[in-house]
Amino acid sequence: MKQQRGAALVVVLSMLAMSLMLGLSGMQSSQIDERLAGNYKASAEAQMGAERAISAGWGVSGSGVSVSDFDATRTLAEVEAYSWTEFIALSDISANVCSGNIACHYYLLQDGGEYFIAGMGAVVSAGTLAALSQPVFARVEFTPGPNPAFTKGLLSADYILVTGQSTVMGNVHSNGTVDITLRNGSEATVTDGSDQMIEVPLPGTRPEGEDMSACDENPAPYCYKSYDPNVFDEYENREGVINTCSIDVDALNDGDTVFCDNDLVVSGGNIGSKRVTLVSTGNVTMNGATSSGGSESEIGLFVIAGQDIEFNGNTDNYGVFWAGGYVRQNGNSSLYGAIVAGTYIRSNGGIDFISIDNVTNPDTFVPAEPKIVAWY
């Protein structure tokens, strides 16, 4: 009996030891599972932070992005290889757009002709990085369309003066004054600087004497102009450009670009549906009509002058006319399309103007309407 009692004790102690070992093993397994779950949670939160950063960069319906916001000094491959420390050290990085123990930032990147919103997120616990996301990229495309300035009818940064009665269909605006007498039947919206000021984009450089330092209080009309001095380089260096300072519209083909590093003289002809761009660093003189197919025509002619544009004779002209200086019509005329002038628009005689926004020349287009087309 004593031997049997001793054997029972050994069996009980063995079972207790096995139970203890099983319990310890279970505790270790639970701790490992808990750590794994915590790491997975932190990793998921970091990744969601990266996506939240992209959402903040995108804004409401793309309101947070425009083409000029994207930095083109780095490539997509470079940013993909960045560590968290390198990413948040970028000069153009956003502020932290997450909260709590989650940090996240976005960066707007242009690689060639492609645009990306890059985002990274991290979980910070007691000052230590607990988890990092992989870089996330949203590729953004901008649907091009005519520059809004080229669909506004008559737009002058200084004043508009038309002698004689006129028929106008569309918008007329000057940041200075507007003096125009409209015939019955006109369907025009006429505004001037007393109603609102409109930013006027212009080719070339700002004239001397326009002191921008005086634009802080009670700004003059010229304060609402912006200039692009590099616009001429794009056309001068374009493949297939026609370098001449005298051109006949009838001699041009669809897609032609004419560049003159001086004053350009244009003889009239039939534009039809051709998309043609005429560029002068100086003045442009339009002699004769650039006729098209009627008031419902597509507007394919784009005329750019670093200084002034003048129309001579009683003509019909279809196009977008963009002048760093003034636009002046000598004689009665019909104009279809849009005019944007850096100083004044003046017609010595009546004018029949119909604003047509069916602009087809891609040189008038600017990127607009962003949309996210892919995620990486």
Rank of each mutant, 00 (worst) to 15 (best):
M1A: 07
Q4S: 11
R5H: 07
G6F: 08
G6V: 14
V10F: 12
S14F: 06
M21F: 13
L22A: 15
Q31K: 13
G64Q: 03
S66C: 15
T75F: 10
L76R: 05
W84L: 02
T85P: 04
F87R: 00
V97C: 03
A103Q: 03
E114G: 08
L132M: 10
P135A: 06
G153E: 10
G153R: 09
T163H: 12
Q165V: 15
G170V: 05
G170F: 10
G170H: 10
N175G: 06
L182E: 03
R183E: 15
A188S: 13
T191M: 05
D192V: 00
D195V: 11
G204M: 09
R206A: 15
N218H: 02
P221V: 01
Y224L: 05
F232K: 01
D233C: 07
N243S: 14
G255P: 08
T257P: 01
V258I: 03
S267M: 02
G272W: 06
L278F: 09
T285M: 14
G288S: 02
T290P: 06
G293N: 14
S295H: 04
I304N: 00
I309F: 04
F311R: 01
Q329T: 07
N332V: 11
G337C: 08
G337V: 04
R346P: 01
I351S: 08
I351C: 05
I356N: 00
D357I: 08
T364C: 08
